[in-house]
Write a protein that binds this DNA or RNA. Structure first.
Ligand SMILES: [Mn+2]
Ligand SMILES: [Mn+2]
Ligand SMILES: [Mn+2]
Ligand SMILES: [Mn+2]
Lengths: 222, 222
DNA sequence: GTAATTATTTAGATAAACCTAAAAATATAT
DNA sequence: ATATATTTTTAGGTTTATCTAAATAATTAC
């Protein structure tokens, strides 16, 4: 399709993330901050990426991913997130230990490997941080996180954000083995007080109040 | 311990393999052939590796791995072979599709990853080509292949070489799903004619003559 | 044991991905 | 609107891993 170096892939990924958060246009300085390189180096790389047709670029005007560039960026992101699932689900990594290794694994070049890994993992839709995994075409469900108490009985989601970050609350969650990346299933909702019975990925079942569930943001699985 | 680049790791691995096959001393030209680089490039790299203390080198005298160098080489080989097992056992790659991908995966740096992968694969002793997998200390059983008909009842081995490479024989083996890398268990040996009942890794059971088993070299598992 | 051949090293280049320092363009502030 | 500050680019280096061509050492052949 087109061959990108390890470095070029990292630039595309950075540009993609900056474009999604900011609004479309991405500056030289923002890229250099994200990748911990100097602006001068970014200028160099930008010309190269522009020549390869993966970004549009006019001097001093910032950059935009082309259709091709976006596609390539999403391929790398797909690989990154699939590997993260593998590390957590199969190799028992904690959700916060996987990123660095995935940064390396995402650059392995083998379409067959990724196809088979996806199969092996049973076509996961979300990574351990609750971020969606693009399919082979780069499509994914852009589901915004909801409060756990809004999720319907029987449904599952992945915990992505803890709203109340006070020490006592985090300590309480830790005791319950609740941390970002954990998969939570709503077993039963109690109308009376808004509390709910939940089950974690590893089978642990527990009861939590509405106050607690209201402070947990999850991305609901389809 | 010491940090090696992707390229340096490949040189060490090549030197290790050349030293084991040839006898200890490894020449500039042999390295250049193996790695598909020019002798001049090898001379450059040799000086660098010597400075890092992983090889001993006197001009025009060829190179030797130091204790440290051998250790580092075996670390990479261990990773390569573990990944090959993963690809075959978990992702259903064929034995002849794994090498190229393993060449990439062997350079991923994460001690935890390899520890966990080893666990996940249940501490395999041989890779899909029948080559032994060094342990964390670089030790491995140097078992030389034997003919299948010499293997005892109830034991298993991995097929590493087919002695008779005539087309009809290879075709017959193919029909039986027998190919290098397959794990073969001897279920029963018939004294009368030297034939045997065998079972392949995927559960297939079959009966083969002494002529056939005598042409299959396997590395026996302990 | 000298000559021819082969192996190895050195010298000098190149491409990728960085860097620092300086110049040029753009944005901001009064 | 001009001066100041910020952002971005350019110019010129560096390091790593490669190359070609030329020089030198070692081996082999007669
Ligand atoms: Mn990540
Ligand atoms: Mn993630
Ligand atoms: Mn291999
Ligand atoms: Mn192998």
């Amino acid at each position: 399709m087109i061959n990108l170096s390890y470095s070029e892939e990292n630039y595309l990924k950075a540009i993609y993330h900056l474009a999604v958060n900011g609004n479309g246009k991405v500056t030289t300085n923002s890229i250099s901050e994200k990748l911990l390189t100097k602006p001068a180096s970014v200028s160099d790389m930008i010309r190269k990426l522009s020549d390869k047709g993966v970004i549009n670029y006019k001097k001093y005007q910032g950059v935009h991913l082309t259709r091709l560039g976006k596609q390539m960026a999403l391929k790398v992101i797909r690989k990154h997130r699939l590997w993260e699932v593998f590390l957590v689900e199969k190799l028992n990594f904690n959700w916060d230990e996987v990123h660095e290794v995935a940064e390396q694994l995402e650059h392995i070049k083998s379409p067959l490997l990724i196809k088979r890994l996806d199969e092996f993992l049973k076509f996961p839709k979300y990574d351990p941080h609750g971020d969606p995994i693009p399919d082979e075409n780069g499509d994914f469900a852009e589901s915004q996180p909801i409060e756990l108490n809004e999720m319907g009985e029987g449904n599952s989601g992945i915990l992505v954000t803890i709203k109340d970050t006070s020490a006592p609350f985090l300590k309480y969650l830790d005791k319950l083995s609740i941390h970002p990346g954990v998969k939570i299933k709503v077993v039963e909702k109690i109308e009376y007080d808004g509390s709910m019975q939940i089950e974690l990925s590893k089978g642990k079942v527990m009861h939590i109040s509405k106050e607690v569930s209201g402070n947990l943001l999850v991305t609901e699985e389809l």
